[in-house]
């Protein structure tokens, strides 16, 4: 009886891991099978990289969504990186314990806010601001980037803070003992030491930004042509899957295109994970 009890944790964890692996592999297999009719066509890349999305007339160009995904993610990261790093640096400075604890708690709570809330807020505040400032409809890549930046900032701030905390205190003390100012210590010692973890944090934030759907959908406008600027409406891979998933039943060409879009996202995420691993493995 006791042997059975002793082996239970190992068996339970092994079963859970095996189940997870089967589900993951099953998902990839389902996407590959669904996408295969399109991948197997002549010149699949030429068809998929076109700029025209008119699925009811057989045009499945994904370029507007690739551009939308890249621009929105880049905008969000450009806006959030300096802000998140600033928050993390402040938290890593000498602060009263209560202030630090309160601030980290607030950030932790903000990481748990559902994305639809950010989207709603974006609809009420960000879209009108973009409209008033730049004209047009307000629904735009810029609005999506702003909402994403605000969504990602709490997570990225906490990850940056953990990265800075990983630098041994003795290093900081040593730097101070050699006469370096706090800013010199930060720029020349702490940031370089924490660089692998900082880059890993950025890649995690990029993955979250690329994968976010609901909040982006609510403010981006859903336009399916190549955007002409940052203040133009647009769409990303994830928002277009959300918009059109109900019109293409399994087995149709349109459904195969959505499977291709999902596969592209998964491959992108995999590459980000590999990059993150590579940076952490740096000496």
């Amino acid at each position: 009886m006791s042997m059975v009890r002793d082996r239970a944790p190992t068996r339970i964890t092994a079963a859970a891991t095996a189940t997870f692996a089967v589900v993951g592999l099953g998902l990839i297999a389902a996407l590959l099978l669904g996408a295969w009719p399109l991948i197997g066509e002549p010149r699949p890349l030429a068809n998929l990289l076109g700029g025209l999305w008119d699925p009811l007339r057989g045009a499945y160009g994904l370029a507007p969504f690739f551009v939308g995904t890249v621009v929105v993610t880049a905008t969000a990261m450009a806006l959030t990186l300096p802000f998140s790093l600033a928050v993390a640096v402040v938290l890593s400075r000498p602060l009263p314990d209560g202030v630090r604890l309160g601030a980290t708690r607030v950030l932790t709570v903000l990481t748990a806010v559902p994305s639809v809330i950010f989207g709603w807020w974006g609809l009420l505040a960000v879209v009108p601001w973009v409209r008033a400032r730049f004209g047009g409809a307000g629904f735009s890549l810029l609005a999506a980037g702003l909402v994403l930046a605000i969504m990602v900032t709490p997570t990225l701030s906490l990850l940056f803070y953990q990265a800075l905390r990983s630098v041994p205190r003795a290093f900081r003390d040593g730097s101070a003992a050699l006469g370096a100012t706090p800013d010199q210590t930060l720029v020349r010692m702490e940031l370089p030491c924490a660089l692998p973890l900082l880059i890993q944090a950025v890649l995690i934030a990029v993955a979250r930004a690329v994968g976010e759907t609901m909040a982006v959908q609510m403010v981006i406008g859903g336009q399916t042509v190549l955007p002409t600027g940052l203040t133009s409406p647009g769409a990303t891979l994830t928002t277009q899957i959300l918009t059109d998933m109900s019109i293409f039943p399994p087995g149709t060409r349109g459904h195969a295109v959505l499977d291709v879009m999902a596969l592209v996202l998964m491959v992108g995420m995999y590459l980000l994970v590999r990059l993150a691993e590579r940076w952490v493995a740096m000496p």
Binding site: W53, D54, L123, V127, P128, R131, A137, G138, F139, Q217, G221, G222, Q223, T224, V225, P233, A235, T243
Partner: peptide, 24 residues
């Protein structure tokens, strides 16, 4: 076809709210 430059609202209610708020 409706112009591909149209902005897509996911529901009837979202369409109404967007038209109320957006000049033009």
């Amino acid at each position: 076809r409706v112009t591909p430059r149209a902005i897509v609202a996911l529901s009837n209610g979202a369409m109404l709210a967007a038209v109320q708020e957006t000049p033009g």
